[in-house]
Nucleic acid binder design. Structure first.
Lengths: 293, 293
DNA sequence: GTTTTTATCTGACTAAAGTCAGATAATGTG
DNA sequence: CACATTATCTGACTTTAGTCAGATAAAAAC
């Protein structure tokens, strides 16, 4: 562990030096860094000023001043949003768009300069390792938190989940045929709905529902495709088990379809044992349970 | 290539966000970032002010002012160096050392916080990928440039090279027994000595020496242990071949010992063909040559 | 022994980055 | 309709980070 920490710190030193260069793409454009960042963030499609402020985490007065300056340089146009005339919508002018394109080009060039001295094989290795670091850093940023099961976020996760099932199961999947898990079943104190999210948005979910005295059922365990293989399912399952303990449950059950092999492996790895069917739903082929310690 | 660039830019975005957190270890210490950086760079052993200035690349007046401020906070002591009373030596006080230790602890903690949410396997993968990225970024920073063959840097490289040979060859290696390559042989226009270096220092070398009209000989090809496997030998060899072309040579020769299998692979990969012995040195077992196009 | 160079220090200055307290106008709430 | 809230804007202010032109003292070069 100590040596791992040491390696992360070494990585950090090297990478900040190198990617500092990438950041400097914003410099040397005859304009303070803050203004360039703003310009680049506005992008070709324009943006509400408020969204810009939130995204960059800046003071409203400060943003206003920066926009004023970019406006004087004829890089942007500000217009009131029609639906709410307090809101301002900012858009790049032709000149501003040209500047955006140029910054984008310099960014590409900075990235190419990193690859240029390397041979083809080493390039591929570097890019692959970078992708791996990025995925795992993303994984380490994920937080798992309760979410009202009726919220739009929860509903979005469930739609994703159902889509996966519909695609995986031989004959498709219709939630109406399966045993229900209504929002009220997934609400404390009898149940809960958890969402795993990065700063970008939700990447997984899982639910716990009561199934009789002292018994809980795990449902709706889903991890977004690009986020698989990062131990997120494992973490959601662990969080659900902790919740179950807090609810005073001592037995957890779940069922699953034979096509969901990763899920089965996950359950077995976490101490779930296969048991005879405890329901007669049309979709599951395997039923598991685990006694909580 | 386009997709590789895109991946580097994605990596950059994620990593700067995440390692920005690491950088912020210096913040929240009730002290501007510049002062904290200086304090941390001074370190437990103290440092000459000049070295500090060079290392951080700061203006001398600015450094002086920062030091004055840290002195007022009783974090550092300044003393004149005995050997040259113009030089100032800066040292942490007990209080400064405590602050250093605290910053160090926070750095460790920031790194641990990245690892904490991950399982053991994913931790290992992240650290390994980080090490790979770091090594390859280092490789991409390497520059290859001519160096006077008599310089202390060149001599240092040669000592490293001889040590490797002494270790690898069954019966040891004594440069006195081998065919010589004196500094004047490795000096333009008849020869050249190239050094590959990172910002940290030299990590490889290679030499070209005249061996008759139109013929050159590659000698002293060395890559430092930790820098192997990054294509550096390949790049040095390529640079030597370009030099040879510039010198108007049309045939390159080299010899090598049977224990240096990576080197042999490198030569074959680059179009060198094994030929009968062209010398009777005691150490080589294989002789190669290549016609320059 | 004079001149030049080097290392540091000081004072004066600037630009960038950001904070804070209102002002203003539009919108939402009871 | 009164009142609170929201989004933006403006002016006044501060801190941080850094540059530049000498001043000074020690050391090196001639």
């Amino acid at each position: 562990m100590c040596s791992q920490v040491e390696k992360i710190r070494r990585f950090n030193r090297t990478v900040t030096r190198r990617t500092g260069v990438l950041r400097d793409r914003f410099l040397g454009r005859n304009r303070p860094l803050g203004e360039s960042r703003l310009l680049f963030e506005i992008g070709p499609d324009g943006m509400e000023v408020r969204a810009l402020r939130v995204k960059l985490g800046l003071d409203s007065g400060y943003v206003s001043r920066l926009l004023r300056s970019l406006e004087r340089q004829k890089m942007i146009k500000l217009e009131s949003a029609p639906r709410d005339r307090r809101l301002r919508y900012v858009r790049l002018t032709r000149l501003g768009l040209a500047e955006y394109v140029e910054i984008d080009r310099l960014s590409d060039k900075a990235a190419e300069d990193i690859l240029a001295p390397l041979g083809e094989q080493h390039r591929a290795r570097l890019v692959a390792a970078m992708a791996e670091v990025e995925r795992l850093l993303m994984a380490s940023e994920i937080t798992i938190a309760p979410e009202p099961a009726g919220s739009s976020t929860a509903q979005w996760c469930l739609r994703q989940y159902f889509e996966v099932l519909d695609e995986r199961f031989g004959g498709g999947y219709d939630p109406a045929d399966a045993s229900p898990a209504d929002p009220q079943d997934l609400t404390p104190p009898s149940g809960i709905f958890l969402v795993a999210r990065t700063l970008e948005g939700p990447v997984g979910c899982g639910a716990l529902k009561s199934a009789g005295p002292g018994i809980g059922e795990i449902k709706r365990l889903w991890v977004a495709g690009p986020a698989r293989g990062l131990g997120i399912g494992q973490r959601i399952l662990g969080a659900l088990e902790n919740q179950a303990r807090d609810f005073g449950l001592n037995l957890l059950r779940l069922d699953t379809n034979r096509t969901l092999t990763e899920a089965q492996a996950l359950y077995r790895k976490n101490g779930y044992r296969e048991v005879p069917p405890f329901n007669d739903d049309p979709y599951p082929h395997h039923w598991f349970e685990k006694h909580l310690g």
